[in-house]
Every structure is written in structure tokens, then in C-alpha cells.
């Protein structure tokens, strides 16, 4: 399997500026929703909001969202980083070599509203694994899902609560998310023709 070079037929979905604006909007949406949940029948503790980013890009986005939320709400929510490698249903089934980076969540998720953050929502399998991993750590009062890009093509009954940008894609395409934290000059999301790496 050889990937078609991304530069050949990549189309840009989000540019540097878009990513910044989308993250800001997501932060507002999360804040609104948590307030509503606090007032509503769920009566969650809005002050206890925690973000959990799925390694690697989800973790970067969770940290950015936390910064935005600090501006919006005046207080920065706790952020945890979740490594779901050990929960993947394909960890021993070939494909990309998983690299274990470790989970870093130094707070108790028990009884708190948690927003799970990832970069791309695709088949839903990563989110399934992340839920398992998260629930093994404790029992949050509720879990919501925020993603930068929803590319469709779900294989599991999973939906995001907060979507940065919904993009229509085909199976053979790859969604590449580039973030400054990973050493890229600027943020950006591209859809490229090429054999997908079945991860999401």
C-alpha cells in the first residue's frame, strides 16, 4: 500500500486562521452547553468541567480549548491526556505501529462532567476505545465529545456533541491534521487522496 503524495491532490479544509476560529467557537459551545447542563435536569457541576484529550492531536486541542475556556469563563478547566493504545481493538491486528505514550490524568474524573477531545471523528472506534479507557479511570457524571473535524463514515453508533467542521469524505481519502505543537509551521487540515490508514 503506497500513499499518493499528499501534495498532489490535497484539498484544504481548514487553514491556520480557520483552526483558531473553530477552536474559539468550540470553547464557547462547550461553555454554553455545560451551563445549560448545570441548570437542567442533569444538574452537573459546571465548575468541575474537565477536558480529556486523546493523544496526540486531541491532547493538543484539549490544551488549546482549556486556554480558550479560561478566557471565556475566567477559570481554566483541568486537562488530562489519554493514551488509548491499550484499548484499541486493532492494537495486535497489524496496521500502524502503536506507540505507547502513557495516560496523564492527574485528577479524579469521578462525578465530573468530562469533554473528550479528538482531532478527527471517523469510524468511531477511537472514541469507543477512549470511552473504555476513560471509564476505567472512574465514573464521570457525563461525557461529551468535541472534535475538530467530523469526516463521516461512522461504523459505530457514536456522534459528536461539538463539531468544528463537518467534511464529506470518501473511504480512500485521508484527513491530515497539522498542528503547530507537532512542529508544523502553521495549523491546517487537508483531505488527500490516498489509501487511508484505518485508525478512526
Amino acid at each position: 500500500m503506497v500513499d499518493v503524495p499528499a501534495s498532489v491532490e490535497a484539498r484544504r479544509v481548514l487553514d491556520d486562521d480557520d483552526v483558531r476560529r473553530v477552536v474559539a467557537r468550540l470553547a464557547h459551545e462547550i461553555d454554553d452547553r455545560v451551563r445549560a447542563d448545570a441548570r437542567g435536569p442533569l444538574a452537573v457541576d459546571a465548575a468541575a468541567l474537565a477536558l480529556v484529550g486523546i493523544r496526540t492531536n486531541g491532547a493538543h486541542l484539549a490544551l488549546r480549548l482549556a486556554d480558550e475556556l479560561a478566557r471565556v469563563r475566567g477559570s481554566r478547566p483541568d486537562v488530562g491526556l489519554l493514551d488509548i493504545t491499550l484499548y484499541r481493538d486493532d492494537v495486535l491486528a497489524g496496521g500502524a505501529m502503536p506507540v505507547l505514550r502513557g495516560t496523564e490524568i492527574d485528577f479524579d474524573v469521578e462525578g465530573r462532567p468530562v469533554v473528550l477531545v479528538d482531532d478527527v471523528l471517523y469510524t468511531g472506534r477511537t472514541v469507543r476505545a477512549a470511552l473504555d479507557a476513560l471509564l476505567d479511570l472512574g465514573r464521570p457524571s457525563l461525557v461529551r465529545l468535541a472534535v475538530l473535524v467530523d469526516r463521516g463514515l461512522r461504523e459505530l453508533p457514536i456522534a459528536a456533541d461539538f463539531v468544528g467542521r463537518a467534511v464529506e469524505t470518501a473511504r480512500g481519502e485521508r484527513v491530515r491534521v497539522q498542528l503547530r505543537e507537532e512542529g508544523h509551521a502553521e495549523d491546517g487540515v487537508h483531505v488527500a487522496v490516498g489509501v487511508e490508514r484505518r485508525r478512526r
Binding site: 491499550l86 484499548y87 492494537v91 505507547l100 505514550r101 502513557g102 473504555d132 476505567d136 479511570l137
Partner: peptide
């Protein structure tokens, strides 16, 4: 990798499905 598992071993539920 062992360090990652030390974290797992500090959890209340010390088990992963790997």
C-alpha cells in the same frame, strides 16, 4: 513502556484490555 504501566498500576481499576 513499563513507565506507562506504572501509571496503570496506580489506578483504582488496574486493568487494560490490550
Amino acid at each position: 513502556t513499563a513507565r506507562s504501566f506504572i501509571e496503570v498500576n496506580t489506578r483504582q481499576l488496574k486493568k487494560v484490555p490490550a
